[in-house]
Design a protein around this nucleic acid. Sequence first.
DNA 1: ACTCTATGAATCC
DNA 2: TGGATTCCCTAGAG
Length: 578
Amino acid sequence: MGPTTRARFVHNRRRRPGPYASDDEEDQQEASSSSSSSDDEEEEEEGEGSGEADDDDEAAAAPSGKDEVEEEEESPVAAVRSGRKASITISLKKVCKVCKRSGHEAGFKGAVYIDCPRKPCFLCKMPGHTTLNCPHRVAMEHGVIPASRRNTNTSLDYVFQSQVKGKISMVKPQFLIPNQLECGNIKFHERRVTCLEFHPTKNNVLLSGDKKGLLGIWDYIKLHEKTTYDSVHSCILNSMKFDTGNDGLLYTASSDGTICSTDLETGIGSSLLNLNPNGWTGPRTWRMIYGIDFNAEKGLLLVADNFGFLYLLDRRLKTRIGHPILIHKKGSKVTSLHCNPAQPEILLSSGNDHYARIWDTRKLEPNSPFASLAHGRVVNSGYFSPQSGNKILTTCQDNRIRVWDYIFGNLESPSREIVHSHDFNRHLTPFKAEWDPKDYSETVVVIGRYISENYNGIALHPIDFIDTSTGKLLAEVMDPDITTISPVNKLHPRDDILASGSSRSIFIWKPKTEADATEERNRERAKEFVYGSGSQKKSNGKHENSSDDDSDGSPDGKKKPKKTRFTHTVKGKGKSKA
DNA sequence: ACTCTATGAATCC
DNA sequence: TGGATTCCCTAGAG
């Protein structure tokens, strides 16, 4: 396939049979050590518990731990036979870069990443298996362990049914996945994109922020219409919010410790808050602002810093109201803020202290949240559902998306947990699952995926659409030309459009039209005719073909779906699933 | 095909 | 509590 920019929305692939994963491991093991002895395999199979002598530890722990041993030219086989296990061992049996032991290797083999078997699963974080055979790594149509709905007979649920649900349209509008790449800009930003926001009224205008503090305004229909402001902030532009009373006004929050308002028509900006008035006095004092939201009813801007404090700003007076209030563990970052769309005085905050908290901003006091939602690790974001505001969606660095179905119900534990790969990586903008603002059923969310999957020999990182009511993976959006991770994703408030930020690039996705689909089918057919069955290799593949990923490939060379899926699984409340 | 690096959170004493 | 150290799928540059 040429350098097409067609998006890939793949579906209906079968799950590969169970044991393949371990086969893969062994295959790759043998490949890496040409003279694989039975010792190797045993050692690998056994794992930690069995008190093997760990002969290789010395070698593994040898000076500098790097594989700089190349002096020996003698046959590795001979070396093994002779029983010597000096530094030569390293060149014979490569050292795992993760656990520094020999006998196995972690890393990419082609487009497939082989985990270190000694570490917990990189997807679900549980020990005893790797991502290759993680029970949460599943095919799309099997990708879900159905979530149990919570008890439906409690009085609260009755209230919910009668009062809340009645107001929500039960008819789900047709849902179109914006899975086809419409356009992408290259090097628009010099550093990685950190946030995206659609203009609330101008339909084709997208705003973006990056790690250097650059603010970009971009009409993605008229591509030449781009404006950038590089003087608004001096470092990471973490978040932005429009003034709902004045579409032309944008508030931005930055790690430079300031909140700025920018008039998008004139470009004139003004500072609303500066938490570092004395400049740099060291990392212990430098304040950064991540969360920001706007209470339109009160004309109130709410922002929070990396020391756990919340600040209230009067939009018009451009002054602080009251004193900063500690809303998360002192000294820990507040990662996001969100005002409830239905009741703006209700605030949701997320923090590095592993909690998301619900507050009533009318009576703010430290240690008096309306509720504290415990998480396994840092909470990257927390959002009320966009229509009713009755649900809560959080993204946590423990690789779980959590949903609470009803904010006035029992918040002890989430209604559902969805295992999904969106781990922390210091070089990536934190992943945030976001609701589809157009989805009146308040179930669809979008989030980028960290770990890759092998797509016809290319490791790709799709953008996932997930139905949070069931955990079902609705779609994975990807393109063979986009090999980078897309942690930043935004769905258009009215149109079926997805904007994604991936490294320094921004991409716009639209639904595939019927004509597109037909054209693609024809192209595929033509290719099969030309090349015969199955040899549809990527001409532009940066990675090798996936054949090594499946050594039991069918002899007739017939193409079969080799794609393996890292997706997610739902843990419903009170569910039992091993 | 290397190597470097910008960097954030967890962990370990 | 805090400083040093470590680290698992990065992306881009040299």
